[in-house]
Nucleic acid binder design. Structure first.
Length: 256
DNA sequence: ATGACTGAGCATCTCAGA
């Protein structure tokens, strides 16, 4: 079972990239973030032709997530449990597939909207931790994949790539990430590569890719049962060197 | 110290991204 995540920075700009990647890697499930469109504008037919069904949680212009899968799946939630029903930000999709619960997230960046924007990020992280705890209590096999917008440690960003006060590494951000991890989850990348660079994002600006000035912000966290079955993790950094790439690259996890 | 790419949209500028 291969499960992956990719922040594509507009699916309408990146559909050819996604199509090629699906053909090459053939994941069972792929979560997308920042599709930047409503469901009706999502080019689902392109992926259906490859044998993938799409479920879309969209909104106009910003955010937006989707799940593509070539195995049967059921949508469980389209909004992070605990958020008010009028929360309009499309950032969460939870499915069941292959006997496990799989969650795709686009966690708020937290750098816009002043302190209110940052507070929203932290509230979102606490609700995500609550969801993880509920799934642990239910003894579910689950994984949370996506753009977490968190650099968990100083090893997870290149020197100078972020201001020291950036919302991706402010202490409450990291504390909230650890609070989730320390429920008993496993960071799939760090389980197999405990230290060193493992960037998943390079800014478009100032030659960040050429200078390898990147961030590790796309993560896959696994429940104990899935961590025991972890095979391999692939950060497909070659995707960053294609024509018109997303600023993020795919992260794929093999579950035995 | 400063600026720098990219995408969407009630658009020729603003907001957001990270």
């Amino acid at each position: 079972m291969r499960v992956a995540t990719w922040n594509v920075n507009s699916i309408r700009q990146r559909a050819p990239h996604v199509r090629d990647w699906l053909a090459r890697v053939q994941p069972d499930v792929l979560f997308l973030q920042e599709i930047k469109c409503e469901a009706a504008q999502f080019p689902a037919f392109e992926f259906e032709a490859q044998g993938y069904r799409a479920e879309i949680v969209g909104q106009k212009a910003y955010n937006g997530v989707a799940a593509l899968a070539r195995i049967p799946f059921e949508v469980i939630h389209r909004r992070l449990p605990g958020l008010p029903e009028d929360d309009a930000q499309a950032r969460y999709i939870e499915i069941t597939a292959g006997g496990m619960t799989l969650i795709g997230i686009y966690l708020p960046n937290g750098n816009s909207g002043g302190e209110a924007g940052y507070d929203y990020k932290i509230r979102w992280m606490h609700l995500l931790r609550d969801r993880a705890r509920a799934l642990l209590d239910a003894e579910a096999d689950f994984a949370i994949l996506g753009d977490w917008n968190v650099c968990p440690t100083d090893e997870d960003y290149a020197p100078g790539a972020l201001s020291p006060t950036d919302a991706l590494l402010r202490p409450p951000t990291r504390a909230a990430f650890r609070a989730t991890l320390w429920l008993g989850l496993t960071d799939a990348v760090r389980a197999l590569q405990p230290s060193g660079r493992a960037y998943t994002f390079w800014d478009y600006q100032a030659g960040a890719r050429q200078r390898d000035s990147g961030l590790r912000i796309d993560h896959a966290l696994l429940s104990p049962g899935l961590a025991e079955r972890l095979g391999s993790v692939t950060i497909d950094s070659n995707e960053r060197d294609r024509e018109q790439p997303s600023d993020h690259v795919p992260v794929a996890v093999e579950i035995k």
